[in-house]
Design a protein around this nucleic acid. Structure first.
Length: 270
DNA sequence: TCGATCCTGTAG
DNA sequence: CTACAGGATCGA
């Protein structure tokens, strides 16, 4: 269940293990994950190519292949992308697989099958990603730009942070954590937050994500499933009813945009 | 802009 | 059984 830090960890591991490998066979077990593209299109454009590089844009994983083809993988809620030593034995939750030499394989494993893959020709991928906001861990993500953009929106801060067009890669956990660290209510409209607090939020986003990437990379470099929620020091997420680490008041859970938002009603006032 | 929807698993 | 899950898109 990945946000930017977990997706980043997946990318790094993939780079370490599969860069330069030739993809000798491709199989789409669940055609829905390729929608609206045909499984045959994916199989045809990926088979026989070499994995040249692995990039991340927000929560999108970009597998750049020889010949300029780009395979985009989005893990959504429960997806995972990893290398297996023997492609003959796969969990039933694998929706897409690419066989490498020596029986190894790269697999897209997704129990809920909400994740998506898509194939793009050279120069096509930019268009697909054009609506995604700035990378929060890149120099392009300046506090000036963040504050300027924030002024344009009346969205509640939590929904704003989760909007991939505004900032790339934040999800339900780290949006909540950044808001807690910046002491901003998740309900407060972005354009009504003071520049000083926005500067604090900008810094909090970078801090939280940087720490979470480290944690995710560490956790994910050992075999097994994701478990960053246990590793990363969560202040509010999933802690409904438990005491706030700063003031002791019970953390509250509310619904925003159909998702749960956790926050401290005292530390994060409107 | 909001709710329904896509899927499956797990916890209560 | 119901509620909920670290996401995003679509139609009303």
């Amino acid at each position: 269940m990945p946000e930017l830090p977990e997706v980043e960890a997946v990318c790094r591991k993939l780079r370490a293990e599969a860069l330069g490998a030739r993809i000798v066979a491709v199989k789409v077990m669940r055609p829905a994950v390729a929608k609206p593209q045909a499984p045959e299109l994916i199989e045809q454009s990926v088979r026989g190519r070499t994995l040249r590089s692995v990039d991340r844009r927000g929560k999108n994983i970009l597998l750049r292949l020889s010949g300029g083809t780009v395979l985009r993988v989005h893990l959504r809620m429960t997806g995972n992308l990893y290398v297996v030593p023997d492609i003959r034995f796969l969990p039933s939750t694998v929706r897409f697989s690419m066989e490498l030499p020596g029986q190894r394989g790269i697999v897209f494993d997704d129990p809920r099958a909400l994740g998506r893959i898509s194939c793009h020709g050279p120069g096509e991928i930019e268009q697909v990603l054009e609506d995604i906001g700035p990378e929060p861990l890149s120099p392009a993500f300046t506090s000036q730009r963040f504050i300027e953009d924030a002024r344009q929106s009346r969205l509640p801060s939590k929904l704003y942070l989760m909007d991939q067009r505004k900032v790339a890669g934040l999800g339900n956990i780290y949006a909540a954590e950044a808001l807690f660290q910046a002491r901003i209510s998740p309900l407060k409209a972005m354009n009504r937050i003071s520049p000083a607090r926005l500067r604090g939020l900008h810094a909090a986003i970078i801090e939280v994500l940087t720490a979470a990437v480290e944690s995710a990379v560490r956790t994910y470099s050992t075999p097994g499933e994701f478990s960053e929620a246990e590793e990363f020091p969560v202040a509010v997420y999933g802690r409904e009813g438990e005491g706030c680490f700063a003031c002791g008041k019970p953390v509250r859970r509310i619904a925003q945009g159909g998702r749960s938002t956790y926050f401290c009603p005292r530390c994060q006032r409107r």
